[in-house]
Design a protein around this nucleic acid. Structure first.
Lengths: 361, 361
DNA sequence: TCAGCCAATGGGAACGTTCCCATACGGACT
DNA sequence: AGTCCGTATGGGAACGTTCCCATTGGCTGA
């Protein structure tokens, strides 16, 4: 270890080892096999003595591989985003890649800037979980050859892979579970889909199942801040149920949180009125009588995202791929009516369905 | 906008504008005032025409300012870390800095690597919220002149500012609240303090207040995974209370979560046995009868961290500073005994105490 | 009127890499 | 024995910027 202010350069290592900088460069850029054993030894010795570490700036300038993967997140405070991020991170680590995360905080201008920042750091791939508006910047990035993976979004005009939940399966599983539990009248609540294609997909599937005829269902699209309208809609829905037992299906964790709050506040009994949400949250087993959820396999999703990136980095341009994953159902008290009150100690019966459907479009 | 594969360089802009690259460089490195009006116009025109964007790699190579701030987080899945990160982020945005976040996932080796990565990207400052072991790497970074802010940790041998909760005030507030509510026997539960200095500080303050004599308190240091030991300790504590009403104080959000789980599972009545936690979590008002918390002002803490960084970037080395912030108490049902059952609709009486104490050591 | 200076600009050498090309050498062919 | 090739190495030119040091020209003050 050297105590000098400035870090050692490749040239200094080369001098110390009595070899050329080219050889040292080769050692550090994955061409070790090309060097003789003696050479390798001298280099490691010199490098450790000087505490040498390659300078990624210089490396990036010349155009070498950066070993860097970027991730753009729309809302870091969303536990689901964090869970995915964690998955991506682990996959990166395993692949020897570094991950650089930027949060756009749902701000378009911010998102644009972050994108510029990431691309200027020569990332080798980008995982995007963001608004998806102004896809031009994304499209440009993709066109420039950077592998791109979209999480939970779908952008027609962008050449990118997509990874996410199997939304159709999720909705079907939820509906099946709710009917099994005796709920005959369903309400699907979602935030405005806008450009968030997974919200759109879930909404559409639910609507489609309604039109199938077999289902007495309704949908509500709402800004979560609009408490008044939510309360009204809730009351109307409960009234409309008639003989049928009513249940609510929340399109994501945010909606589940908002609805749990309102139902508690308004005194609706969970289970009496069914409640079920997509996305598992840490408090779902804590709030009486426990909230039934469909958990996304965030680890697998993150892993798949990184796999896509790496596949695209090697092979030439293929058609965009799409990988979807089925959720896991955790049944809790909120979809169980009064007949059998839930036992206290972790009454969660977990019915797993982890088939991984993979389709290419 | 140009459609060429490779992004435009400063030289191309200079040629297009009919000026020297030095002038273009000046324009982009904050020396605009030195250029004549005409020159400026020609440069912007050419730059926008070519879609030019300075290459941070080249810039960083030469040693210019990077406009980049790094943040090292030990556990991204901890909501408290995320909240702070969000604060740091907002402060950075306001200051025109970019933030690059790395999560070490409580892995020492990972942490070391992330640190190397960040420092090699010539960050202008680093916000650290991590294990704090092997401070040598951090010390080296600090010695090399990178401004450093420690969140919630204190490292004697590292030249760095510290920002965090006013732990003494927090413990005092908690104790005062619990006694006011009639709890006479207290148990403080924390994860092993090890090198996490804020855990240590909270534990010490609690112990100190116990030794003062006025308080009948006990402490439990425990790994949260050790459910058996936790259950035993819980039972023993409740038994030991005698005439006094028992209450538990959790050192952080993780502990609060674990305890809420166990108490529900074991059938202890919240409020009957008091429960209070440091750190506010989104479900604290959801789980009956609501959990009393001390919320950390995460926004202010993040802002303060960035302020420290910027102050240190300008001024020469000063003695390390320390800024602490008082928490906000949100009283809920978990510290209210049966006499007055909590009303359903948001019964939270918020008693705020937002004095900001600032001391330099 | 001329030295001296300041303000505006430009040329060129760094910064630490990678990579193309050149060199040296040994062995397997013709 | 001479040619050719493959393997192990080194030299030097990029990469896109910043910054030091000119070089201009107009203006002030003696």
């Amino acid at each position: 270890m050297n105590d000098r202010r400035r870090p050692a350069t490749i040239l200094e290592v080369a001098r110390q080892a009595g070899v050329s900088k080219t050889s040292v460069s080769r050692y550090y850029s994955g061409e070790r096999e090309r060097l003789s054993g003696a050479m390798r030894e001298r280099i490691v010795a010199a490098a450790t003595a000087l505490g040498y570490q390659p300078n990624p700036m210089a490396r990036g300038l010349k155009g070498g591989p950066s070993g860097l993967v970027g991730m753009l997140v729309a809302d870091i405070r969303n536990p689901f985003s964090v869970a995915i991020m964690h998955g991506v991170e682990q996959a990166c680590r395993q692949a020897g890649l570094s991950l650089m995360v930027c949060n756009s905080d749902n701000d378009l201008e911010q998102e644009r800037q972050q994108l510029a920042l990431l691309s200027s750091y020569r990332i080798e791939g980008l995982v995007v979980n963001a608004t998806g508006r102004h896809s031009d910047a994304l499209a440009q990035l993709a066109d420039s050859g950077t592998p791109l993976v979209l999480l939970d979004r779908s952008l027609a005009d962008v050449h990118a892979d997509e990874v996410g939940l199997d939304n159709d399966a999720a909705i079907d599983m939820a509906i099946a579970h709710l009917r099994e539990q005796g709920y005959g009248r369903l309400l699907f609540i979602t935030e405005p889909p806008a450009q968030a294609s997974s919200r759109q997909a879930r909404l559409e599937r639910f609507n489609q199942r309604c039109r199938d005829g077999s289902l007495s269902g309704d949908t509500l699209v709402i800004e979560l801040g609009d408490r008044q309208r939510l309360d009204q809609a809730l009351a109307r829905f409960v009234d409309s149920a008639g003989d049928s037992r009513p249940a609510i299906l929340c399109a994501n964790g945010q909606v589940t949180l908002a609805l749990t709050r309102r139902m508690k506040a308004l005194g609706y009994l969970l289970g009496e009125i069914g409640l079920m949400g997509i996305d598992e949250l840490e408090w779902c087993d804590l709030t009486e009588p426990g909230i039934t959820t469909l958990a996304q396999p965030t680890g697998a999703i993150g892993q798949a995202a990184v796999d896509c990136l790496r596949a695209r980095a090697v092979g030439p341009r293929q058609a965009p791929q799409r990988a979807t994953f089925a959720p896991t159902l955790t049944a809790r008290g909120s979809t169980q009516h009064a007949a059998t009150p839930s036992v206290t100690a972790e009454p969660s019966s977990v019915s797993s369905l982890s088939s991984t459907s993979e389709t290419s479009s």
